[in-house]
């Protein structure tokens, strides 16, 4: 059984308008998304701004209300369980945020930041708590003496590690990482990514990795879902998506990534033009009248693409 299964998840936000601020319409931020993640794997959710990838992550962890659909975590449906049960589940799902500068309360010491989830869920004595926090700090590669410092005394990469320490404090099973390295310099990115993989092995963690950076997604993920306007356009293993993309949107996304070999420059530029021409030509076939992707059709056991009914 998968650790988490998302079935036809929808998150719609009301749009209010008119003189009396009545609900006029809905923004379909997430509009029928399904995927599942096996224990110990990393699932990549890719898309550009406005694709709904972040909202999907936030809905799973309860930061956005689910309009319809199911989120099955170890068989329990998170969209219907009551508050009390939910609190237990929340212990097993933690989140790492994009911006290590604003996601840590600047007025709290690191000891308090990391201990916060422990205080919410576990009844530890002050001494036990300190020992646990120090263990966590060591685990994320920070000096245990640093627990009495404030976030501003740390570099961006170190802060992200503090964020990770907070996220793993309760031995969660699933971590939702929303653009965890986007705000960091390249060399620091490497540090955080390596570290995330290390603790994944050590603690048998499952990741839902949300990012717009396909290089990082390729490096980190086993399976990938590509989102566009709240829906999936393609889903498959990393290998399938990167070597055999089927949807014109996926192709365009991959063609847009800069090639690190300068000798391929011209070829890559021409290829981008070809892909763009193909996209413009086939746009009507690949999207419905509203410009939204169709529902997914399987083209192999692991690979699904949003294709029209007839095709």
């Amino acid at each position: 059984m998968s650790l988490i299964e998302v079935e036809n998840l929808k998150v719609h936000f009301p749009v209010r308008g008119g003189i009396f601020q009545t609900v006029k319409d809905h923004v379909r931020a997430v509009d029928g998304v399904s995927f599942s993640i096996e224990q110990g794997q990393t699932y990549g959710l890719v898309g550009e701004s406005g694709s709904g990838k972040t909202t999907t992550g936030r809905a799973i962890i309860g930061l956005n209300d689910i309009t319809s659909g199911k989120v099955l975590f170890e068989g329990k449906d998170l969209s219907t369980i009551n508050k009390k049960e939910y609190i237990d589940v929340r212990k097993d799902i933690q989140m790492i945020f994009q911006d290590p500068f604003s996601s840590l309360n600047p007025k709290k010491r690191v000891a308090d930041i990391v201990a916060e989830p422990l205080r919410n869920y576990e009844n530890l004595s002050a001494k036990e708590e300190r020992i646990r926090v120090q263990e966590l700090m060591e685990l994320v590669g920070l000096s245990p003496e640093a627990i009495y410092k404030y976030p501003h005394e740390f570099s961006g990469g170190q802060r992200q590690r503090i964020g990770i320490a907070r996220a793993i404090a309760l031995n969660p099973k699933l971590i939702i990482a929303d653009e965890p390295v986007s705000a960091l310099d390249v060399s620091v990115q490497a540090q955080v990514l390596n570290f995330m993989r290390e603790i994944q092995k050590e603690l048998n963690l499952t990741y839902l990795f949300i990012s717009h950076d396909l290089g990082i997604i390729r490096h980190m993920c086993d399976h990938i879902g590509i989102m566009y306007k709240g829906r999936y356009v393609e889903h498959g293993t990393s290998e399938e998506i990167f070597t055999n993309p089927q949807h014109i949107y996926t192709k365009r996304l991959i063609a847009a990534i800069p090639d690190s070999n300068p000798r391929n420059r011209e070829m890559h530029y021409e290829n981008r033009k070809l892909v763009k021409a193909e996209y413009d030509k086939l746009e009507k076939d690949f999207f419905d009248e509203e410009g939204l992707p169709f529902s997914l059709k399987s083209i192999s056991a692991t690979h699904q693409v949003a294709l029209p009914e007839r095709g």
């Binding site: 060399s187 990115q189 490497a190 290089g215 390729r218 490096h219 980190m220 990167f242 690190s260 070999n261």
Partner: peptide, 8 residues
């Protein structure tokens, strides 16, 4: 230090 598409 950068992950690339060409080599994993």
């Amino acid at each position: 230090s950068i992950p690339t598409l060409n080599e994993v």
